[in-house]
Simulated assay, not measured.
Amino acid sequence: MPWNDQKGGGGGPWGSGGGSNGDNNSPWGRPQGGGNQGEDLEDQLRKVQERFKGAWGGGRGGSGGSGGGGKGLGIAGIFLLIGALAVAWIATGVVVVDAGQQAAVFQFGKWQRNLPAGIHIHLPQPIESHQLIEVEAQQEVQIGNSADQSLMLTSDENIADVRFSVIWKVSTENPQDYILNVANPEATVQMVAESVMREVVGRSELQRVITTERAEVARQVQELTQNLLDQYGAGVEIIEINIARGDPPAPVIQAFNDVNVAEQDAQQLINQATRYANQIVPEARGEASIILEAAQAYKAQVIAEATGEASRFLQILAEYAQAPTVTTERLYLDTWSRILSRTQNTVLDNDSGAVPYLPLENTNRRPTAN
């Protein structure tokens, strides 16, 4: 070896320090007991540097080795350096993908494939390179913090103050689009979601936006936003739309509340009128049905009586045709019988020879209607 000095007086691997006793030299070439005590530290450092230069083929060998041995170690060092550089170059093609990540591999800048979680190898740089993408991390964009963003016009020409947030993440199906097609993903999601919200609110009435149909509005916004981002190839997945606020603007909220109260009062009166109508209409229909049935009964009665009188008249007419005198007298007597039965008069016929009799107990009798 170059440091193995076989000459007499050679000491440690850093050269001899002089003196007659070489076996007692220290590693820095300084004798432990006497000899060359005035040599300073700078000279020692200079000698160490020269020894290193010689060991790596620096062209000048030290006092303890030949020129051929120094040259051989320099070539080996070069090969070791080349090997280390080769290993470092190959290591640029090793990628470790953590859980919740994907790695997009590019060949000379052109996307080739995506790598799932795990340890993978691709061609070293600059042939192929990779970029890690967080595909499971959720991000949130707040929209409506300013009046320019929150004030929206509804279909019934009212103004709604809408504030909402968008929960999104990188798409696991096409994460490379997130890198290649979108320069500012957060701003893109914000502008698209705000535009879609204005469209949905513009097609809806104010009452829908601020009351029970708010969840339906959020669902429509999420669906339309996702479709629009897919058309752009943004590589973004919309997870949820949360509408934090949907109210009239602050300057008109009192008037809006008054209108709501008036509408509620009007609806209450309408409900009362409807309830009264539901009560009175069936009663009126029942009374009308009773009247109609009574009229039908009276009609049938009148017709039956008329038919009976006509039949009786025809029968009397037939009897009259057979015996006119007897029939006429019988009709005469029957008629007076009906008339006199309704009066309180008592008629005495002196010509018949009957004894006059006045039934006083019947004088106060009231007539009965037939």
Results as ranks from 00 to 15, higher is better:
263 E>P: 06
211 T>C: 02
295 A>W: 08
262 A>D: 00
9 G>C: 01
189 V>F: 01
259 V>C: 05
45 L>P: 00
337 S>A: 07
243 I>A: 06
281 V>P: 01
249 P>T: 02
227 N>R: 15
102 Q>F: 02
128 E>W: 01
24 N>F: 05
89 W>C: 03
83 G>W: 11
95 V>A: 08
194 E>Q: 15
347 V>W: 10
329 E>F: 15
349 D>M: 09
305 E>Q: 07
105 V>T: 02
298 Y>A: 14
359 P>E: 09
358 L>D: 09
270 I>P: 00
143 I>T: 13
256 F>Y: 15
192 V>I: 08
279 Q>T: 00
210 I>C: 12
204 S>G: 01
232 Y>S: 09
369 A>S: 14
165 S>R: 10
344 Q>S: 15
303 I>P: 07
225 T>H: 02
285 R>W: 05
74 G>R: 08
206 L>W: 07
21 N>Y: 11
127 I>R: 02
2 P>N: 03
327 T>L: 05
299 K>I: 02
268 Q>R: 12
299 K>N: 11
150 S>T: 09
305 E>A: 05
292 L>Y: 01
251 P>M: 08
186 E>N: 14
153 L>S: 04
329 E>N: 09
84 A>E: 12
92 T>Q: 04
325 T>H: 01
285 R>V: 03
322 Q>W: 07
205 E>Q: 15
368 T>L: 08
150 S>N: 02
353 G>D: 05
306 A>T: 14
274 T>R: 06
260 N>C: 00
270 I>K: 10
145 N>W: 06
194 E>P: 04
15 G>D: 12
91 A>Y: 11
32 Q>Y: 03
206 L>A: 10
123 L>P: 04
33 G>S: 10
265 D>V: 14
274 T>M: 03
71 K>H: 07
98 D>V: 05
37 Q>R: 05
123 L>K: 04
330 R>M: 07
239 I>T: 03
237 E>W: 00
5 D>R: 07
215 A>S: 06
65 G>I: 00
246 G>L: 06
216 E>M: 13
81 L>A: 15
105 V>W: 00
328 T>W: 03
48 V>D: 06
253 I>A: 14
232 Y>L: 11
351 D>A: 10
187 A>M: 01
191 M>A: 13
33 G>P: 03
36 N>S: 08
202 G>Y: 08
337 S>D: 13
351 D>G: 06
364 N>H: 01
141 V>H: 09
76 A>S: 14
74 G>L: 14
302 V>D: 10
270 I>H: 07
63 S>N: 07
56 W>M: 10
147 A>I: 11
152 M>V: 04
81 L>D: 13
18 G>C: 08
112 Q>F: 01
267 Q>H: 10
265 D>Y: 12
3 W>P: 09
227 N>C: 03
278 N>T: 04
166 V>K: 07
93 G>W: 12
326 V>R: 13
